[in-house]
């Protein structure tokens, strides 16, 4: 597998410019961080990345999954030459992000966490000028810009001001901008945050098509489902550390507690939950109104036994829903917390 990205021991410590500003950035984050005696950051400093080793293959759709403050944006910042690492090495598209940053920039496209289109220019100009900054001849840039705008459903907004676009449209403009110079590696920092479900699905389709066209994609998200549905491999990060990295399927297989079986009953579920807890292979149960949730390592095999338990308790089963092991459960087991 050809490598698109490799990081070795990537570390980022944000200095404490002044105490008050720091607290505003991330209340309470610093004290929770485990002390690193060798480098002993003072308590006011923020260790955003504590030695990250990652490899992303050429053409891979790679996800960085983690809660707010995990260090996702810092990682993207370093890989896109926009943040200087405190120590460690990062090679992107064959070039070092510190010593050869212009070479890296030539080969990457970046979709920032917050849309930052050039508001002094209209939509089309945003693309044309960005292409010009990469030395792309005007005629080629114009053709690509038209294609991208059409493809992303904002062809009719080409002459519009940036401020006239909706959040989702601005996000798509940012993606078009990141693609106009045909980069080898595309970075997207929480691209679906704040989008309505419809816009999110539309974006997923765009990303899938990009991936299918052979581009390397690195995306951060704090939505489990998104990472699960889109990525070839996922790195789970928390507090600047890599907790796990693998395919979604293999990560989920590591998740404890197994499959979730939800039964909808025709009456209160408490007694069914109590009964189900005694079955072999059940790790946890809970009753919510007329719904009972059963976590089991036996998957669907448990269903006949569950139905018998329900009938014994005098309840009819209206509906059964099976959820395979999820990243959510894995994340909780790795960090002891929920993702959001």
């Amino acid at each position: 597998m050809l490598e698109a990205i490799r990081t070795i021991g990537l570390r980022k410590v944000y200095p404490a410019a002044n105490g008050r500003r720091l607290r505003a950035w991330n209340p309470g984050a610093a004290p929770r961080l485990p002390a690193a005696p060798a480098l002993s950051p003072s308590p006011a400093e923020v260790v955003a990345l504590a030695g990250l080793d990652l490899t992303v293959g050429e053409g891979e759709f790679f996800g960085l999954l983690g809660p707010n403050g995990a260090g996702k944006t810092t990682t993207i910042g370093i890989l896109t030459t926009r943040v200087r690492p405190t120590s460690g090495t990062a090679i992107v598209a064959g070039a070092d992000v510190v010593t050869n940053d212009t070479e890296v920039r030539l080969r990457i496209g970046v979709v920032p966490q917050r849309p930052n289109a050039d508001r002094s220019l209209n939509v089309r100009e945003n693309l044309l000028f960005h292409a010009a900054y990469f030395g792309i001849p005007r005629a080629i840039a114009a053709r690509r810009a038209a294609e991208l705008l059409d493809q992303f459903g904002i062809g009719d907004k080409a002459e519009a001001k940036v401020d006239q676009l909706s959040g989702g449209q601005q996000q798509r403009l940012m993606i078009a901008r990141a693609l106009i110079h045909e980069p080898r590696v595309v970075f997207l920092d929480e691209p679906t945050m704040g989008l309505d479900p419809q816009a999110r699905l539309a974006l997923w389709e765009i990303l899938r098509a990009l991936h299918a066209a052979g581009r390397t994609i690195v995306m951060t998200t704090h939505y489990m489902e998104e990472a699960d549905r889109l990525c070839d491999r996922i790195a789970i990060v928390d507090r600047g550390r890599l907790l796990a990295v693998d395919t979604p399927a293999r990560l989920k297989a590591q998740a404890p507690g197994g499959t979730l079986v939800e039964l909808s009953l025709d009456g209160p579920a408490a007694r069914v939950a109590d009964g189900a807890r005694t079955l072999a292979g059940v790790t946890r149960t809970e009753a919510v109104g007329s719904m009972v949730r059963v976590y089991t390592e036996r998957g669907g095999d448990l269903i006949p036994a569950l139905i018998r338990v329900a009938e014994a308790a005098g309840r009819g089963v209206r509906d059964i829903h099976l959820s395979p092991p999820s990243l959510e459960t894995l994340f909780i087991s790795l960090t002891g917390r929920k993702l959001d």
Binding site: E103, L106, R107, D118, S120, L121, E125, F129, A132, Y133, F134, G135, R144, E147, L148, Q151, L179, H181, E182, P183, R184, A209, L210, A212, A213, G214, R215, T216
Partner: peptide
């Protein structure tokens, strides 16, 4: 999607990039 990732990304000259930056600012000005 816009074709395969281009393998022929030519490094533009600095003068060319400066020209594009200036043009942007002149248009806005």
């Amino acid at each position: 999607m816009t074709a395969e990732p281009s393998t022929l990304v030519q490094r533009p000259t600095t003068a060319r990039i400066v020209g594009a930056l200036l043009l942007r600012d002149l248009v806005v000005m």
